[in-house]
Computed example of a mutant assay.
Amino acid sequence: MTARLEEAVVAANELIAAGVYRLVIHAPRMAAAAQPGQFVHLKVNNLTAPLLRRPISIADTDQSAGTLDLIYRIVGGGTAFLSGVPVGEHLDCLGPLGKGFALECERPLLVGGGMGLAPLVYLAKALCPRPITVLMGGRTKDELFWEDVFAPVCDQLRLTTDDGTAGTRGYTVDVLPELIKTGNFDQVYTCGPRPMMEQAARIAKQYNIACQVSLEEYMACGLGGCLACSCAGTDGKRRKVCTEGPVFQAGEVFGGC
Results as ranks from 00 to 15, higher is better:
Ala3Asp: 01
Glu6Tyr: 08
Ala8Ser: 14
Val9Ser: 03
Val10Cys: 08
Ala12Met: 09
Asn13Asp: 02
Glu14Lys: 11
Ile16Thr: 02
Ala17Val: 05
Val20Tyr: 00
Leu23Phe: 10
Val24Ile: 14
Ala27Phe: 09
Ala32Leu: 15
Ala33Gln: 15
Pro36Ala: 08
Gly37Ala: 02
His41Cys: 02
Leu42Asp: 04
Lys43Pro: 00
Lys43Ser: 12
Val44Gly: 00
Asn45Ser: 12
Asn45Gly: 10
Leu47Asp: 13
Leu51Asn: 07
Leu52Lys: 08
Leu52Met: 13
Leu52Asn: 12
Pro55Val: 06
Ala59Pro: 05
Ala59Phe: 09
Asp60Glu: 13
Ser64Phe: 11
Ala65Thr: 04
Gly66Cys: 10
Gly66Ser: 05
Asp69Ala: 15
Leu70Glu: 06
Ile71Lys: 01
Tyr72Cys: 04
Tyr72Gly: 03
Val75Tyr: 04
Gly76His: 01
Thr79Asn: 01
Ser83Gly: 02
Ser83Lys: 13
Pro86Arg: 13
Pro86Asp: 06
Val87Lys: 12
Glu89Arg: 11
Asp92Ala: 10
Leu94Tyr: 06
Leu94Phe: 09
Pro96Thr: 01
Leu97Arg: 04
Gly98Asn: 11
Gly98Lys: 09
Leu110Gly: 05
Val111Glu: 04
Met115Pro: 02
Gly116Ala: 08
Ala118Gly: 00
Pro129Trp: 10
Val134Gln: 03
Leu135Ile: 12
Met136Ile: 15
Gly137Met: 04
Gly138Cys: 09
Gly138Ile: 08
Thr140Val: 10
Glu143Met: 07
Leu144Thr: 04
Leu144Asp: 01
Phe145Gln: 00
Glu147Pro: 00
Phe150Val: 03
Val153Tyr: 15
Cys154Met: 01
Cys154Pro: 01
Asp155Asn: 09
Gln156Lys: 13
Gln156Glu: 14
Leu157Met: 04
Leu157Trp: 03
Leu159Gln: 06
Thr160Met: 01
Asp162Gly: 03
Gly164Tyr: 04
Gly167Asn: 12
Gly167Phe: 10
Tyr171Leu: 14
Thr172Leu: 12
Leu176Ser: 05
Pro177Asn: 10
Pro177Met: 12
Leu179Cys: 06
Ile180Trp: 00
Thr182Gly: 01
Gly183Trp: 09
Phe185Cys: 11
Phe185Asp: 03
Asp186Val: 03
Tyr189Ser: 02
Thr190Gly: 04
Met196Trp: 07
Ala201Glu: 02
Ile203Val: 15
Lys205Asp: 10
Lys205Ser: 11
Gln206Glu: 15
Asn208Ser: 14
Val213Arg: 11
Ser214Leu: 15
Ser214Gly: 03
Ser214Ile: 00
Glu217Cys: 13
Cys221Lys: 00
Gly222Met: 05
Leu223His: 04
Gly224Asn: 07
Gly224Ile: 07
Gly225Ser: 13
Cys226Gly: 05
Ala228Asp: 06
Cys229Thr: 06
Cys231Phe: 05
Ala232Tyr: 09
Ala232Phe: 07
Thr234Val: 11
Val241Cys: 05
Cys242Ile: 00
Thr243Pro: 05
Glu244Val: 01
Pro246Lys: 07
Pro246Ile: 05
Phe248Pro: 08
Phe248Gln: 07
Phe248Arg: 07
Gly251Asn: 08
Gly255Lys: 13
